[in-house]
Every structure is written in C-alpha cells, then in structure tokens.
Nucleic acid binder design. Structure first.
Lengths: 227, 227
DNA sequence: ACACTGACCGAAAAACCAGTTCGGTCAGTT
DNA sequence: AACTGACCGAACTGGTTTTTCGGTCAGTGT
C-alpha cells in the first residue's frame, strides 16, 4: 500500500519547482529527488508528467473552489454572476501558480489543461456543467436570458471572460490595479448577463444552496484524483 | 521626384505576396521584382520592411473606414456602438488580409502594428481618438456612462472587443458562423455600454454627423502615409 | 507479496556549425 | 536627383551530433 504522505510530498515538490522554473524546465527526476523518492515512484501515483502537473493545478483549483463555497455560505449575494466572476478573476490574478503558468508556460498550458480526466475538468468545465450552472442562475432570476432559448449564451459569456483575462495578461505592473480590472469585469458581466434591478434575497439564498451543491460536486470530483 | 505610380505598384506587389506567403516568407527583393523596381527604390518610399507592410494594412484600413463612413451616411443607426462593432467584426472576419495575417503571422503581428507612425494608428487608435469617440457617443445619449466620470470605460470596451476577436480566432470553420459571432458581440456591447431603450432618430442623426467627421479625419490621417 | 528504486531505452530537444537568405546601405549609373 | 543592384553582417536554415528526459521494468529490501 502506498503511504498516504508520499503523494502529497511529490505534489509539493512539483508545485515548488513549477513555480521556480516552469513546466518545460522541470524534470520528473528533479521532482522525485526533491520529494526524496525514486523516479519510478512518481509513476506509481500518476501515469505521466502532464497528469502529475495537472494534479498540482487541480489541487490549487480545489483550494479556490473551497474559497468560493465559503464565500457563498457567508453571503448568498455571491450567487450573482458578476460577483462570482470578479472573485474568480481576483483569485486567478493572485494565484502564484496561475500567473507563473500563464507567463512562463502559455504554450504548454493546453497540454496541461486537456490531459487526463481530472485535467480537463477544471477548465471552463465540461459543457454540461456550464449548462447546469446557467440553468440554476436562470431559474432563480439571476440571468437575463433563458439558456435553453438562447444557445449563444455560453459563447457570449466566455468571450467576455476571455477578454478580461487576455487584457489582464498584457500590461506592465500587475498587482495594484487588479481590483480595477475585477470591477470592470463585474460591471460588464452584470450589465450583459443579469436582469435589471436587484434580485430578491429569497432568490439569492435559494440559488446559493444549489450553486453550493454544484461547486461541491465539482470540487469533490477534482479532489478524487488527488492523493 | 518619385513618380506617383511606383509607390502604389510596390504596395500592390507587397499585398499580393503577403496574401500568398505571409509576412515572414516575403522578401523585400521579391516585392521589388514583382513591382518592376530596384530593391533600393522600396527604401526610398518606406524606411523598413515592417513599415512597408504596415502601409499595406493601413491602405486596407482606409478602405474599411470608407465603408463605415458610407454605411453611416446611408443609415445613421450605425452610430450605435453595438452596430459599429458588429460590422467592424464582420469586416475583419471577411478581410482576406486580416485573416491571412492572423492565421499565418500572429507572431509577427505585434511588430507590424506597433511599427512606425502610421502603423500604430489603425490599432484601437491613440488614446485621445478613443476618448473623443466615446465623448461624441455620450453627448448624444448613445452611451450609458459618462466617459469623463468613468475612466475605466475604454478598458471595459477593449476587453469585450478583444474577447470577441480572441474567441473568433480559435474554432474550426470560419465563414458561416461569422454572423452569429457578430450578433453575439452586438448583444454584449449593447447591453454593457448602451443605455436602455431606443435612441431618438434626431440623436442618431446628430451623432452620425460628428462620427463621420471623426472617421474622416482618421481616414485622412491614415491615407496621408500612403503614396 | 508488494511498495519502491534507479539503470536503461528510445525519442525528442539542445547544441553546434556550415551554408544561405535577407533587411538595409551606398557608391555608382542614368 | 531618382533610381539601381552589388555588398555587408546579422539572422535564419538544414543537417548532424550530443544530451536530456519521459517512461519502463527487472531487481531490491522489507
């Protein structure tokens, strides 16, 4: 039986090296050495380098999802898409892992995100997860358009989000203006996708419950692939 | 005195070769030969290869601006931002030059767009041109926010537009679904940046006049760098 | 029996180098 | 004075060799 701790040590080593040198430059042998483990052992836990590192990302995503879930529990207002995406943006902007990957490995990113079962998952999620998400929002009056009637909605939404992340990558000093960019995204999302007027507190609470469950399911699915 | 015709012949040659082979693969000597001109002559008209080819792009932009101006004259409704950006999107999607550049030279694109005086111009335009544009829209009630009060407006707008173009580049078959994507962009822009309700016909006409002048000035500035 | 290891394999990348191309210049021609 | 093409050095190309690295597996220790 593989001892529980070793997998975690390997992930820690992989994460540290990934932050320092980037996916391309890190050799599996290095990871093994840093984790005080034979190289073969790594392959007892993950079938390939790509899956190992997407597990690193998955672990980070689990952390972020936990934050989302906590925020939602503390304040159901976070069900509103513009707040959800603003905090998603903030999280990614402040995640060392995400920024390191984006600045150093944007070429290899595709390989990481699409590899393995768990890897793809934390992307925008499989299509049906997105559909489910939008459906919940609409049923509680947090979305202006009926997703079943308007099939271009996911496209419009990802276009807006992609634009926000694209522009966030270009300019010079990140950090201070992250808040401004997050607010900009919030404004766009609210106006382009939410109905006019404030939502009812009752609707927010009801949506929060369903969204929590949705996030939780997603979180557990991701966590299952971790040691 | 350089004869008027030669510059045009060089641009024609450059455009044709650019469409066939892409920026990287086209040699200045080829362009010169195709234009029946010595290589040195090319450098009497443009100081570098990059500026020569950004002149090709500038000429194309002039054509597109002319279309915009004509559309605006025919129907002042085109003053509304969502229609403006939708047809911008359509134009770019259908421009052989733009698509060839984007699919074959997206790495060298930066060099082209930022090189020279004329090169940068047809980008999102210098900051003050954008500011002027937004100001005109706001004064005629075609914009929900006051650009002088809300300085993040240009950022929000370019983020949305950037997202639309980014997603448009990825998928498989271009062509048929261009209309859908243009409509998606239109919807987002209208909701995120225009006031609720229909604008008055009088306001549209007034805005169209000012926008025409703005476009015209921009067009002439671009055209000035051409032979 | 089984978790674990590291020497080993082939494929892919890096390093190297000759040979060529090409952007840009300029002395010379018309 | 407009124009040209031979010329220059830097950058690229293609082919070869060397090294690196992901992945495997026979073997070790417990």
């Amino acid at each position: 039986m593989v001892e529980r701790d070793k997998g975690r040590r390997i992930l820690d080593a992989a994460e540290a090296l990934l932050l320092r040198a980037g996916y391309r430059k890190v050799a599996v042998a290095e990871v093994a050495e840093r984790a005080h483990v034979g190289k073969g052992t790594v392959y007892l836990y993950w079938p390939s380098k790509a899956e190992l590192f997407s597990a690193v990302l998955a672990r980070d995503s689990v952390r972020q999802l936990d934050e989302h879930i906590a925020a939602l529990a503390a304040d159901p207002t976070h069900s509103r898409p513009h707040l959800t995406f603003a905090s998603l943006f903030r999280q990614v902007a402040h995640s060392p892992l995400a920024t390191a990957l984006y600045t150093r490995d944007h070429d290899a990113l595709g390989e990481l995100l699409t590899t393995g079962e768990g890897g793809v998952a934390f992307l925008a999620g499989k299509t049906d997860t997105t559909a489910h998400y939008l459906d919940v929002l609409y049923r509680h009056g947090l979305l202006a358009d009926d997703p079943t009637t308007d099939p271009t909605l996911p496209y419009r939404l990802s276009s807006v989000v992609a634009g926000a992340f694209l522009l966030a990558g270009l300019p010079g000093a990140a950090g201070a203006d992250v808040e401004l960019k997050a607010d900009a995204l919030a404004t766009t999302v609210r106006r382009a996708f939410e109905p006019a007027g404030e939502p009812k507190a009752r609707a927010l609470r009801a949506a929060a419950v369903e969204l929590s469950a949705l996030y939780q399911r997603w979180r557990d699915e991701l966590a299952r692939s971790l040691p």
